[in-house]
Simulated assay, not measured.
Amino acid sequence: MTSDTRSQPANLLRFNGQDYLVDVGDGAAGQSGAAGVQTKALDAIFISHLHFDHTAGLAGILGLRFQTNGTDPLTIYGPPETRQLVDGLLASMEPGATANYGVAGAAPVDHRAGIRVVELRDGDSVEVDGMTVTVRENSHYSFPAGSELAERFQSLSYRFDLPGRSIVYTGDTGPSAAVEELATGADLLVVEMMDIPLTIERLLAANPGMPEPVSRAMQSHLSEHHLSATQVGEMASRADVRSVVVTHFSGWEKSEQGHMQYLQDIALAYDGPFVIADDMDAF
């Protein structure tokens, strides 16, 4: 669902003069501008999984990069099938890129130039501009092991090991021993959190007449593939992380009565510092 208080997931990681987006939800281009980063200046993008709320802003990033004559290389890291996603978006840009500024006789410009895709799988590790990036498959998908869909799709959590600091980004996940292992001892855990009963209630209210099979699948996904406040605290405690930032939050906001319960639930399981972040917060 759209929100009047929160944008879709897009996190800016700044390191050693470089700017990286971690997930690229709808509105990422505008929010990047608000953070002082032009789309053509982005050095890389990391995508956790291919759900639309984590990828919908990529079209805007690529389009504005072309329109502002971005020529520096841009690497897009993501799970299997990321290349198909990017190829499709670049194909959709063909009419606008061909017309370009509408000037007769202008030299054609290749809107695909400089864009590179690197697909990652569970356990992979890559060196990017002086930081080590490691990924683990989390539990946001639960396709049967060995099935075609399990082979084609993975939802990834990322660990960024920088000189002097380690940051783990869960993306969307349910409880996951693999994510806890990835996050062990990290300085910062950036984690999603959902008030699952409230979110189900709101989705059903916003979609009257939803077919029963669709409703059951949606409720199963939200219940099993996301983290509650208690589960956030338990994950952070078992991983022994030094601090926690909750993003991609769905629930009662800070001005609403139910919000305090989330803080209490996290604190019961985790005794370190944590915060439920607002858009544009920096850590």
Rank of each mutant, 00 (worst) to 15 (best):
V190I: 15
L204E: 15
T199Q: 01
P197Y: 00
V118H: 03
W252F: 13
L188P: 00
N100E: 09
M218Y: 12
E181D: 15
G185S: 10
R152G: 15
P163N: 06
L227Y: 08
A106I: 03
S48G: 14
F160D: 03
A150M: 05
E94H: 13
Y169W: 14
R238L: 08
Q219R: 14
D172F: 13
A229R: 01
E224P: 00
A277R: 09
L198E: 12
N207E: 08
D271F: 02
L120G: 04
D43M: 03
G251C: 01
F249C: 06
M260Y: 09
P175N: 08
P197T: 02
H225Y: 06
L89N: 05
Y101L: 15
G130V: 08
T132W: 00
S215Y: 00
V190N: 10
D279G: 01
A104P: 09
Q154I: 06
L162S: 11
G209N: 01
R112S: 06
G164C: 12
F52V: 09
H54D: 03
V135Q: 11
E148L: 13
S223M: 06
G57K: 05
G33M: 02
R152P: 09
N100I: 01
A104H: 08
S147H: 10
G88P: 01
D124T: 10
S48F: 01
A178V: 01
V117H: 07
A91K: 14
K40G: 01
A34P: 00
T75V: 02
A10V: 02
F143E: 07
